[in-house]
Design a protein around this nucleic acid. Structure first.
Length: 445
DNA sequence: TCTGGGGTCCTAGGACCC
DNA sequence: TCTGGGGTCCTAGGACCC
């Protein structure tokens, strides 16, 4: 009931009755938690999930954090630690995580009039018209329901701005006594929370600014709010100024509705270094096809296509090469065959013999909404026909599993293929996915 | 010798996020 | 031997125009 009393406190501009509050809900150690849901024997044990190619650590259970495994650490450096502590290691399984994310989002959507999905494991809630509500009761209900429905533990922060909701969320996660819910609804609580928050932990203040601010003796979020607006503006531009305002309780960031993407990128590091054009072409064809698919999913066309390749920048003892080419498409398109053709042409223009390539990628930009095709005098392509081919291909792949139908140049060689030796089964999706994973891993190609 | 001023558009690079 | 991938926004500076 404490929160209701402070709500009515006139001296406090925060959380006044009837005003807007933002909730930030995020999943604790999301990828690690997903692995645990279907394998409860992992509970209480250290779990880490690796990035694509089994490169570096991108998620850790609490037990793994306690062992001192840092985020982003390359897996090979951890070999000993992993073995001696019996850390359970997983390759990332985005099919599984994506599906679990859906379940979480569907559950929390029931609790607020408006929700903004911010990332795979986070969503903002708009708490509008919640007069006289007890945030503690409300929040615990949300948190408990999500955990009961999905098996994923979550935390909820509630505050008058998005940035403060992020701060509150960190406390909810950090201190068990909060039972997963923390709210900042008075200036007293705000001051207390900001004084306990390191400047680098503030949403919007990254490594660079954090260092710079510390140089100026700004060590906590509170220190930051005590600087003048003009000082912040001068030091960090408008972006920093917004963060400053938000931390002082004035909202600058609204709820955002889902927008279609302005650029779409598919890129991967190769499982092994590649020196020949052929396997890189196969990879790039697949990246282009993937971009085309993403475009079709959001019903848009791309006008510009970029291809890039590079060697391993960490291998400083080897000759380095980075290049990219940017190509204007003659007609906006989301046709796989067309994007593949352009991408391959681009690739051969930048490919040079004599290097060990580590990574390649395709970026589609200047994205426009799908619209009726306009006749172009010089456009010889039968677009109607190809559109039909693409939609048939998409629906087959939707029903029977990814990549069941593809363009010839995407190939079967897959020399560029990712390393993912510790992949868990896609428990939640259909059987053919599971079969495909098994086939992928166990059959000789 | 002395060499305007204002506007727009584009791009590269920097900073951030998860 | 082995170091991820996919985004966004802002700014400064150059090119160009009148």
């Amino acid at each position: 009931m404490e929160n209701i009393e402070t709500n009515t406190n006139i001296s406090s501009p925060l959380g006044a009755r009837g005003s807007l509050m933002f909730g930030l809900l995020d999943c604790n150690n999301f990828y690690a938690s997903c692995e645990r849901v279907f394998n409860p024997s992992l509970n209480g044990k250290p779990v880490v999930v690796l990035s694509n190619n089994d490169g570096c650590v991108i998620a850790r259970s609490v037990e793994a954090k306690v062992l001192g495994i840092p985020m982003g650490e390359p897996a090979y450096k951890l070999k000993e630690l992993i073995e001696t502590n019996q850390v359970h290691v997983f390759s990332s399984n985005y099919v599984l995580y994506g599906d679990m994310s859906h379940r979480v989002m569907n559950t929390i959507a029931l609790f607020a009039p408006e929700m903004e999905i911010y990332s795979i494991d986070e969503a903002f809630l708009l708490l509008k018209g919640f007069e006289n509500i007890d945030f503690k009761v409300f929040g615990e209900n949300v948190v408990n329901t999500v955990t009961r429905n999905t098996g994923i533990p979550v935390s909820l922060g509630i505050a008058p701005t998005k940035t403060l909701a992020k701060v509150a969320n960190k406390f909810a996660k950090k201190y068990k006594a909060y039972k997963g819910v923390c709210f900042i609804d008075s200036d007293e609580k705000r001051e207390k929370a900001l004084k306990l928050t390191e400047i680098g932990d503030v949403w919007g203040i990254g490594r660079r600014y954090s260092k710079k601010l510390q140089y100026y003796s700004v060590n906590t979020a509170w220190d930051f709010t005590q600087r003048t607006k003009s000082w912040v503006r001068q030091t960090m531009g408008v972006v920093g100024e917004r963060t400053w305002m938000e931390l002082r309780g004035t909202p600058c960031f609204e709820m955002e509705s889902p927008k279609s993407k302005k650029s779409i990128c598919t890129s991967r590091s190769f499982g092994e270094k590649l020196t020949e054009l052929a396997p890189i072409s196969e990879a790039v064809a697949n990246f282009a096809a993937s971009c085309a698919e993403k475009l079709r999913k959001q019903h848009s066309y791309g006008c510009v296509l970029t291809v890039f390749i590079h060697t391993n920048p960490h291998a400083t003892n080897q000759p380095q090469y980075y290049n990219q080419t940017v190509m204007q498409l003659s007609v906006p398109t989301n046709d796989s065959t067309e994007l593949i053709n352009v991408a391959l042409r681009g690739l051969s223009s930048i490919f040079k013999e004599g290097y060990r390539y580590k990574k390649a990628g395709v970026i589609v930009s200047e994205i426009v909404p799908e619209r009726p095709l306009q006749g172009d005098l010089f456009d010889v392509r039968n677009r109607e026909k190809y559109n039909k081919v693409m939609s048939v291909m998409d629906s087959l792949n939707d029903s029977y599993g990814k990549q069941k139908v593809k363009i010839a140049s995407q190939g079967f060689d897959r020399k560029w293929k990712l390393k993912n030796e510790k992949l868990s089964p896609c428990y939640t999706t259909n059987l053919s996915d599971i079969l495909e994973v098994i086939a992928d891993e166990e059959l000789p190609v």
